[in-house]
């Protein structure tokens, strides 16, 4: 097993190096995304300002601020577009070069995605997080900093990452049948922003819709870790949520293996 990890480690490190090589694009990307988060922020502030209720969807105004930025941050760390890489590999035919090596294609993608995740976490996310912690300390009425919550948040985020990547791998498999999945990827992104709670906290949806979401993996991708961070889940509920995330990891892993086996049976390598 140790040797297997050693074989995949280079993919992680390589991706880290690659990210550092394209710094300009990366910071621009952060800026654009931050812009979105701030629009979201002002929108919610206006909503809170125009109502005389203290809490909306179970969140106070202060909690909502944390929610918005934490959801943005978690979304950035977690949503590494593996399907994009798969589609690139399919279009350029480089998938063949991966298949001649004694490695698992999915594992190599996950390792590569880990590099991306680590970089996103280290470079923009940590700073935003520190900013949020200062905000939390400055605004009265918010729960105090808790190392335990942060720890659970981190565990939950890693699970979220795995859920997203495994899901996106399955999604990327479509590229083997249709070659181009750009359009579908746009649809997926819009749906993900909505269903994971990045746009609107899931607690705002009607009860019936929330029941449906319970049976989909998406709420486990962003909503769960953010709620853990906010301290909305405690005790048994917290464990149940983590367990549900773990169950999704296993389920999507098995599903991915199944699809991969089907795909390799009818693989067509483009370009000779």
């Amino acid at each position: 097993m140790k040797r297997r990890i050693k074989a995949y480690l280079p993919f992680t490190i390589n991706e880290l190096k690659r990210q550092m090589a394209y710094k300009g694009a990366f910071y621009l990307f952060i800026l654009v995304k931050m812009f979105g988060a701030f629009i979201n922020y002002y929108l919610w502030m206006a909503i809170y300002g125009s109502t005389n209720q203290n809490t909306l969807g179970g969140l106070t105004q202060g909690e909502m601020v944390i929610y918005i930025f934490m959801a943005y941050l978690t979304g950035t760390i977690v949503t590494v577009s593996v399907s994009n890489w798969v589609s690139e590999d399919v279009v350029q035919g480089t998938v063949a070069m991966n298949l001649i090596k004694p490695i698992d294609y999915r594992m190599s993608l996950i390792s590569r995605a880990s590099g991306d995740m680590i970089y996103q976490f280290l470079v923009p996310s940590v700073f935003i997080w520190i900013g949020l912690e200062i905000y939390r300390a400055a605004v009265p009425g918010l729960p105090p900093f808790s190392a335990e919550k942060v720890l659970f948040y981190l565990v939950s985020t890693v699970l979220s990452f795995l859920i997203y990547v495994l899901f996106d791998f399955c999604f990327g498999m479509i590229a083997f049948f249709t070659t181009y999945i750009f359009g579908l990827m746009m649809v997926k992104q819009a749906l993900i922003a909505f269903l994971t709670g990045q746009l609107i906290p899931i607690s705002f949806f009607p009860e019936a819709v929330q029941r449906v979401f319970d049976f989909l993996p998406f709420s486990s991708m962003v909503y769960t870790p953010v709620m853990i961070y906010l301290g909305k889940y405690t005790g048994n509920k917290l464990f149940f949520m983590l367990l549900r995330q773990a169950a999704w990891v296993v389920l999507l892993y098995l599903f991915g293996s199944l699809i991969w086996r089907k795909v390799t049976k009818r693989l067509v390598i483009l370009g000779g």
């Binding site: 190096k17 090589a21 070069m97 298949l99 001649i100 004694p102 490695i103």
Partner: peptide, 20 residues
């Protein structure tokens, strides 16, 4: 994967090296 350990492949029109 076992087979891959036994073989070496060169596709003249592609590279298996890390481009960057």
């Amino acid at each position: 994967k076992e087979n891959a350990q036994n073989i070496g492949v060169v596709f003249g029109q592609r590279t298996q090296l890390w481009w960057d």
